[in-house]
Amino acid sequence: MAEPVRVRLVLPRAPRAELLATRAVEEAGQRIAFPRDTLAEVKLAVVEACLNAIEYGTGEVEVEVIAHPNDAHPWIEVAVVDHGPGFDPSQVPRPVLEDKLRSRRKRGWGLELVRRLMDEVEITSRPGMTRVRMIRRRGGE
C-alpha cells in the first residue's frame, strides 16, 4: 500500500494565512485522488480551525495534513495546533441562525462548521496547547 502523503506547515500570523493550509489540503488530497467536492469541504473546515487557532491562540499555529491513499477508502486527516490559553469545547454554544439574526454578535459558527463538514473531530485543549484533529473520508456525509 502506498505511503500516506504528509504535509506540515507553520502558519505565519498574517492575513489570509489560513489559505496556505487549504493549499496543503488541496495538494495532499489531489495526490490520493480525493474527490474535489469533498476536498472543498475539508478546506472550508480547515479554514475555520486555522482562524480559531490564529484568533485565540498565541505563538505559532502548526498544521499537519495527512492524506491516506487507501484504494477503497482514502481519507484525509488534518491537525491544527495552537498554543493559546485553551478552551472547553463543551462550553461552546451551538449557533442558531434565528438567534444570530437578532443578536449583535453574528459570529460563532466556526466550530459548528468544522464539526458538520468533517466526519470526525477530536479536540484536545489545555492551557498552552489546543489541538483540533479532523478526519474526512471519501463518501462521508
Binding site: E18, L19, A40, K43, L44, L51, L97, L101, K106, R107
Partner: peptide, 20 residues
C-alpha cells in the same frame, strides 16, 4: 467564489438582518 469563512458569513448575516 470558492472559499468563504465564518467571519465573511457573519457579515452576510448583517446584510440579511438589514434586508429583513
Amino acid at each position: 467564489t470558492r472559499i468563504i469563512n465564518s467571519i465573511g458569513i457573519s457579515l452576510l448575516l448583517e446584510v440579511l438582518e438589514h434586508i429583513l
